[in-house]
Amino acid sequence: MSRIDAKFADLKAQGKKGFVAYIMAGDPDEARSLAVMKGMPAAGVDVIELGLPFTDPMADGPTIQLAGQRALEAGMTLDKTLAMAKAFREEDDTTPIVLMGYYNPIYSRGVDTFLDQAKAAGIDGLIIVDLPPEEDDELCLPAQAKGLNFIRLATPTTDDKRLPKVLTNTSGFVYYVSITGITGSAEASAEMVAPEVQRIKAGTDLPIIVGFGVKSPETAKNIAGVADGCVVGSAIVNEIASGKPVEEILAFIKSLADGAHSA
Rank of each mutant, 00 (worst) to 15 (best):
S2I: 01
R3G: 01
D5M: 10
D5A: 14
K7Q: 15
D10Y: 02
D10E: 15
A13K: 13
G15E: 04
K17P: 03
F19D: 02
F19G: 01
V20S: 06
Y22R: 06
I23H: 01
S33L: 03
S33C: 01
K38A: 00
G39E: 05
G39T: 04
V45P: 03
V45A: 13
V45L: 10
D46H: 06
V47E: 04
I48N: 04
I48S: 07
L52Y: 05
P53H: 07
P53M: 11
M58G: 07
T63S: 07
R70K: 00
R70H: 04
L72Y: 11
T77I: 03
L78I: 07
K80N: 02
K80L: 14
A83T: 01
A85T: 15
A85G: 15
K86S: 14
A87D: 15
A87N: 11
T95W: 04
T95A: 08
L99K: 03
L99M: 12
Y102F: 13
Y103A: 15
R109D: 12
D112A: 14
F114R: 05
I123A: 13
D124C: 03
L126N: 08
I127H: 01
P133C: 09
D136V: 08
D137K: 15
E138V: 14
C140P: 06
L141A: 08
F150V: 03
F150P: 05
T155R: 09
P156R: 10
K161T: 10
T168R: 14
N169Y: 14
N169I: 06
V174H: 06
V177I: 15
I179P: 01
G181W: 10
I182H: 13
T183L: 07
P195I: 13
E196C: 07
G203W: 09
T204Y: 13
T204L: 12
P207F: 14
I209H: 10
K215Y: 09
S216P: 11
K221R: 15
I223G: 06
I223N: 09
A224P: 02
A227R: 00
I236M: 07
I236D: 00
N238Y: 02
E239L: 10
I240W: 08
I240Q: 01
A241H: 14
E247T: 14
F252M: 08
